[in-house]
Design a protein around this nucleic acid. Sequence first.
DNA 1: CTAATCTTTAGAGTCAACTCTAAGTCAAGT
DNA 2: ACTTGACTTAGAGTTGACTCTAAAGATTAG
Lengths: 137, 137
Amino acid sequence: MKTFSISEVAKELNVTAYTLRYYDKEGLMPYVERKESGQRLFKESDIAALKVIECLKSTGMPIKEIKTFIDWCTDGDSTLQQRFDMFMERKAVVDMQIAELKKTMELIDHKCLYYKTALDAGTEEIHKNDKIEIPHY
Amino acid sequence: MKTFSISEVAKELNVTAYTLRYYDKEGLMPYVERKESGQRLFKESDIAALKVIECLKSTGMPIKEIKTFIDWCTDGDSTLQQRFDMFMERKAVVDMQIAELKKTMELIDHKCLYYKTALDAGTEEIHKNDKIEIPHY
DNA sequence: CTAATCTTTAGAGTCAACTCTAAGTCAAGT
DNA sequence: ACTTGACTTAGAGTTGACTCTAAAGATTAG
């Protein structure tokens, strides 16, 4: 079975080897095997697991909570409900994050328009009489 | 003209007064006026400006870059182009963030299904023969 | 007038998530 | 055999964004 070194995995996942060792220290990689000499041997499945970790991280989940999830995985079938619940909760979180980004986008679009108009006029003065416009910007 | 104290503004924006003072220290509020005694007097427009700061922050922009933007605002019409470009860039960033969250959501949905199936079967064993399934979870 | 509750500052402390250093071991090429 | 580069560890250092403390001054309610 093909295996990968820490720097190969780091490259593949666009993180540093430092980061991967940090994750290991924090207990996120209890499954990664080693050579006699202590060097890590990453399998394809280990990389897949790291991608799930990346996924959780990108929802804003802190390392310690991800660790809890990894521990559940190690504990086996008795934790299936917790793990299901966790992913359902993450789903709700991501839904909220997308909704918030869309609101953020509205303000940004508004500002783009604001500055386009000012730029065409050569001055921000053009917005002096706007209804509920924001004075400072 | 109605003004607000720091704790009123903090409540309104769902941040602490500490945070607002920190933003001030970092130069994000050069426009907020003071009483003789030194107490801050927030105007409606100051709150609106803070909402723009919140917006930029929620796109992941660090405080120091937001400070640069505030400085541009202070500099007047000569920086209109930079400010327009900045918001266009933020727009692109937010587009990417939404796209990434959608990819994240795909994996999460997949995991929800995975655990639902396992939960119904009472064991993760049910996924042993999945095509490209992830062994550890 | 007084007590309680703001507010102010400078500066120290916290926290998460890296990021790096030092000293040593291991592996690959010539 | 030797050099170069990648790997290991424990532990220290960094960064960003707060978060709080202490000591002082200001404001409000009774």
